[in-house]
């Protein structure tokens, strides 16, 4: 029963990362590739109908986690207190940015919400990545199963870790660049002309960043978890995930070069 719930929550989180990932990515590149107000309106319209549906996956995952694993929910939410509340504020700013932007047709009003939307998307992608980094690195539980992580300590992994250290920041940047290329591919697929050209450029540049940072992060992971290779040797099917990761990275590169944006997006 618990394994079933675990799979459900993992599935919902994966859906969230994939679906909300591209609209976060669109937010990251929003101000870079959308040069004029009308171009930015096109970008917002590209995610307008789907972004809140995508975010329901996060709510659903949170809700399911809450009643299936209350102890885990309680311990992790209180332990990651500050970053979670900051993520919450960023989610709120992002939602308000999208919802309020179109209410008044005034260039200053729109420009302001564009900046809020972009700023919140950039920080969110890094924070979500850093959160993943924390899970990989692990946290020190006390005897009651609770913990508390400050935002940062000395940016080293030991002795007292914080939410942000060199390792989690690397994972944050991996996520940031991955979502950037994910979002850029989506926009390349949904638009044409100048916007599409710029989106493809961003997709290609961020692709190199993803590659470099992924390799860097794998090396970093092996230095803090020296037994990780043994894990993969013990559970050979686990190798599917990193291999799939690199195959789809290669796919993204290939399709993006040859202009097949929809396939690059799916990869």
């Amino acid at each position: 029963m618990e394994i079933l719930w675990f799979c459900i929550v993992a599935f919902m989180l994966a859906m969230y990362v994939v679906l909300d990932g591209f609209d976060l990515g669109v937010g990251i590149i929003h101000r870079i590739i959308g040069r004029t107000e009308s171009e930015r309106s096109i970008l917002i319209k590209a995610i307008g109908p789907v972004w809140d549906g995508n975010e329901v996956w996060l709510l659903a995952a949170g809700g399911t986690l809450y009643f299936a694993f209350p102890k885990l929910y309680a311990s992790s939410f209180s332990g990651f207190y500050l970053p979670l509340i900051i993520v919450l504020w960023l989610l709120m700013m992002r939602g308000i940015g999208i919802e309020f932007r179109h209410l008044i047709h005034n260039p200053m009003w729109k420009s302001f919400w564009d900046t809020v939307f972009s700023f919140a998307s950039i920080l969110l992608s890094i924070f979500l990545g850093a959160a993943l980094g924390n899970v990989i690195r692990g946290v020190p539980l006390n005897q009651d199963g609770y913990f508390f992580e400050p935002l940062w300590t000395t940016f080293t992994v030991v002795p007292e870790s914080g939410i942000l250290d060199w390792f989690t920041v690397i994972i944050g940047l991996v996520t940031f660049s991955t979502l950037t290329s994910h979002g850029a591919n989506y926009i390349a697929m949904k638009t044409d002309g100048d916007l599409q050209k710029r989106a493809r450029n961003v997709a290609q540049i961020s692709w190199w960043a993803v590659l470099l940072l992924s390799v860097g992060s794998i090396m970093a992971t092996t230095t803090i978890h020296t037994d990780i290779w043994r894990n993969y040797a013990d559970y050979p099917w686990g190798n599917i995930f990193p291999i799939a990761g690199f195959v789809s990275l290669a796919g993204m590169f290939f399709y993006s070069k040859s202009g097949r944006d929809a396939r690059a997006f799916i990869s």
Binding site: Y66, K71, F77, S78, L84, I85, Y146
Partner: peptide, 21 residues
């Protein structure tokens, strides 16, 4: 919903199985 976990962890541990539904 966030605050049930962030600020009321012991309550969530205790009652999450019911009110989580």
């Amino acid at each position: 919903e966030f605050q049930f976990g962030t600020n009321w962890a012991q309550f969530s541990t205790f009652a999450g199985g019911v009110i989580g539904q």
